[in-house]
Amino acid sequence: MFPRPPSTARPAVTIDDIARAAGVHPGTVSRALRGISGKVSSGKRAEIERIARELGYQPNVVAASLRTKQTNLAAIIVPDLSNPLFGPIVQGLEQALRQHDMLCLVAQTPTAAQARRDLVTALAARHVSGLLILAAESHDPLLQAARERQMPTVLVNRGTGDREFSSVVNDDRESVRLVLEHLRALGHVHIGHVAGPSASSTGHVRHQAFVDLTRTLGLKRCPVVEAEAFTREAGRAAARRLLDGRSRPSAIFAANDLIALGVLDALHERRIEVPAGMSLVGHNDMPLVDLIEPALTTVRIATDQMSEQAAALFMEHVRRPTLAVSTRVLVPNLVVRASTARLAGE
């Protein structure tokens, strides 16, 4: 057996080491480094901080979290890590929260209800500062567990009708208005909608807005089918049902870009060209949809603003647990590309 080489690692510097070097009680060092005002003079605090830097002191964040029940960890819960929409939002949240010395822990939403509750329980046991949830559904166990534990929680790109949690959301009704007015201006009056799951706030709101606004605009024969998920596969299956209906539309609005890709697959199966035989509009403007053939016309949500405002709102709730619930609504815009065109004969 080979002898183990002598360790070259330096022992960790402790508060006792700093106290000896500064000639003070360890409690004085602890108060100075924690920034407790009125307990240590400014001159002595500066001296202790200098000695700590020179000795290479690193605070024990685990011990601090046990004492304060706070870890400066924000938990970001994402419904589908494979969805390209969420990458920029999570990146923006992480960058914004880092400015507040907050680190991020990212978790994907479990499917089973009990697993969702267990996830929140596990995060609470680790003393996370709060939750940023990109995955809320109606009566979601995630929200029920967060409510029971009174965890600071902000919903991002999702909302709930009861306004029990603060949220930063896209103006989905405005999104639908932009789409319908664009398609109507191109001569389309028979417009179909492949809706998102009704259990999702975005799926429900966009579906309802589509029904309301087609009536307001006098558009008839505007069929709706609901996709089972915000995925390409679910979009393809729903589009097949829409195309098999009695009233085939001349344009389709998909509830998100992944569903739109599934619609495009279904149209290709039936040799229906886009946009010559069918105009197609998505939602979100996720990365790379400008590179598909044809480039997708879609609604762009303000992901940068969404991340910045959600992070700011989250920090407000962490610092002020009794802060009133609020909703911030962001304005979208339509990005017109090659997948929509004037109706033939118009």
Rank of each mutant, 00 (worst) to 15 (best):
F2V: 11
P5Y: 01
T8S: 08
G23H: 05
V24H: 09
H25A: 15
T28W: 02
V29L: 01
S30G: 11
S42W: 01
K44D: 02
L55F: 09
L55I: 02
G56A: 02
L66W: 10
L66S: 10
A75T: 10
I77E: 08
P79D: 11
G87S: 13
Q91P: 00
G92D: 03
A96C: 04
A96W: 02
L97N: 03
R98S: 15
D101Q: 14
L103C: 02
C104M: 03
L105I: 13
V106D: 01
Q108C: 01
A112M: 03
A115K: 00
R117M: 00
L123P: 08
H127G: 00
D140E: 01
M151G: 04
V154H: 05
R158G: 08
G159T: 13
R163S: 14
E164Y: 06
F165C: 03
F165K: 00
V169E: 11
D172M: 06
S175A: 14
V176S: 00
R177A: 15
L180V: 02
L180E: 02
E181Y: 03
L183E: 05
A185S: 15
A185T: 13
V189F: 05
S200T: 13
T202A: 15
H204K: 13
R206M: 11
H207T: 15
Q208P: 05
F210A: 01
V211Q: 13
D212L: 04
L213W: 04
T216H: 14
E228S: 15
A229G: 07
A229C: 07
T231H: 11
T231D: 11
E233K: 14
A237I: 13
A238Q: 08
A238R: 09
L243P: 10
D244L: 11
R248S: 09
I252K: 11
I252F: 04
N256D: 14
N256W: 11
D257M: 07
L258G: 08
I259V: 15
G262L: 12
V263W: 09
L264I: 10
A266S: 13
E269Y: 06
R271P: 00
V274L: 08
G277A: 04
M278E: 05
G282S: 06
H283A: 05
M286N: 13
L288F: 14
L288C: 12
R300F: 09
I301Q: 14
S307V: 09
E308P: 03
Q309H: 14
Q309F: 07
L313H: 09
L313I: 01
F314C: 02
M315G: 07
V318K: 05
R320A: 10
P321Q: 00
T327Y: 07
N333L: 10
N333Y: 11
L334D: 09
A338N: 03
T340N: 00
L343Q: 10
A344K: 05
G345V: 03
